[in-house]
């Protein structure tokens, strides 16, 4: 049993999200240290404001400004902040009903410890110093005692309206989109069959698996015969020579691929395999590649897979010998 392989797999992308008008007003408002809610037909103020009434599904657009102060409706103490979370030091997750709102906003509370947090406590927004029009413009919440208002750090505890005030929702230079980077780090496990195949490749042997039921040889192997749905365990070495069954000529340079165009991308049925695998054809001008061309793998010192396939010089295979593999 060869070593079971694993490898890191990072899925990372900065998603560009366009905003609807309500979202745009809310996030632009945060940039301007103004918190907006949206009024439903039955008069409730939802903060954060949604585009569509969660009860009736109708579109709602009437905005109202609420206070940057509010009350914790529930909380949870997070002793070990995770990547991407708003604070680096232990903090409380909180749902906060801002003064004037009928629903609660999820954010974080900067507090010295769980002993300092309770449901019903008063909190206020601590604005992020650099604001771009994003939910993170609220840096966090902080405890707020109206009787001991130190007015520090832009808390503006008492400035917002205590009762929601209608708001036009228009600002100069409105935010119309956000960029939301997201990175997740996975560990990829190709499985036992693929691990065996990859171990053989290290010795420059290409292996497949024969199905115990239909006897077909599949390359690369997957541990199961895809047509019979049974485990396939018999290892079979195939190739190294094979036949080009079909191909295309690539004239467009793929991002990150260091291959000069044009080049030929081909389906190659290795001798002894019952289906074709894919590879690049080299060692022959691209416009001379043809269906039926006999090829063999060319390995490089550092590559796990054949770098490309080149002509063997044998006569072309007759169409009838590979047409079932197209």
């Amino acid at each position: 049993m060869p070593e079971i392989l694993t490898a890191p797999l990072t899925v990372s992308f900065p998603f560009t999200r366009s905003l609807g008008p309500v979202q745009s007003a809310f996030l632009t408002g945060l940039r301007e240290r103004t918190v907006l809610g949206v009024r439903t037909r039955d008069g409730r103020i939802l903060v954060p404001p949604v585009e569509y009434d969660p009860v009736t599904a109708e579109e709602i657009r009437d905005l109202a400004e609420v206070a940057p102060t509010g009350t914790v409706t529930t909380w949870a103490w997070n002793p070990a902040p995770r990547p991407g979370q708003p604070l680096r030091t232990p903090f409380a997750w909180v749902l906060v009903r801002l003064d004037g709102a009928d629903t609660a906003l999820l954010h974080v509370l900067d507090a010295p410890g769980p002993h300092a947090v309770r449901t019903g406590m008063r909190v206020r927004i601590r604005w992020a110093p650099e604001r771009t029009g994003a939910i993170t413009d609220i840096g966090c919440f902080e405890p707020y005692d109206p009787h001991e208002d130190d007015g520090g750090d832009g808390g503006d505890g008492g400035d917002g309206p205590r009762t929601p005030a209608p708001h036009h929702g228009t600002f100069d230079d409105p935010v119309t989109g956000i960029v939301a980077p997201a990175r997740l780090d996975y560990t990829y496990t190709p499985g036992r069959a693929q691990s065996r195949h990859l171990a053989a490749l290290a010795g420059r042997r290409i292996t497949g698996e024969r199905c115990p039921s239909c006897s077909k040889v599949h390359v690369p192997p997957r541990g199961a015969c895809p047509t019979c749905g049974v485990a396939a365990t018999e290892q079979v070495e195939v190739g190294p020579r094979g036949t080009v069954t079909t191909f295309c000529i690539v004239n467009i340079k793929a991002k990150g691929a260091g291959i000069e165009v044009p080049y030929v991308y081909a389906h190659i049925a290795l001798d002894g395999a019952d289906l074709a695998l894919h590879g690049r054809i080299g060692g022959i001008p691209y416009d001379e590649v043809r269906m039926g061309l006999r090829v063999e793998p060319v390995w490089t010192a550092d590559g796990r897979h054949p770098d490309h396939y080149r002509p063997t010089g044998e006569p072309d295979a007759a169409y009838d010998t590979y047409k079932e593999l197209l």
């Binding site: 392989l5 490898a7 890191p8 797999l9 899925v11 990829y188 190709p190 693929q194 990859l198 069954t245 079909t246 191909f247 295309c248 690539v250 467009i252 793929a254 691929a257 291959i259 991308y265 081909a266 389906h267 894919h278 590879g279 690049r280 269906m291 796990r304 897979h305 169409y319 047409k323 197209l326």
Partner: peptide, 28 residues
């Protein structure tokens, strides 16, 4: 086309996946 470790990267983009089948159709 998120890269999958250990697998040969798809060398030809989305169109490259389909174009060989088109050639096979033309031949047939």
């Amino acid at each position: 086309s998120l890269p999958v470790p250990f697998q040969q990267p798809l060398l030809a983009g989305a169109g490259g996946f389909f174009a060989p089948h088109v050639r096979a159709y033309m031949r047939r």
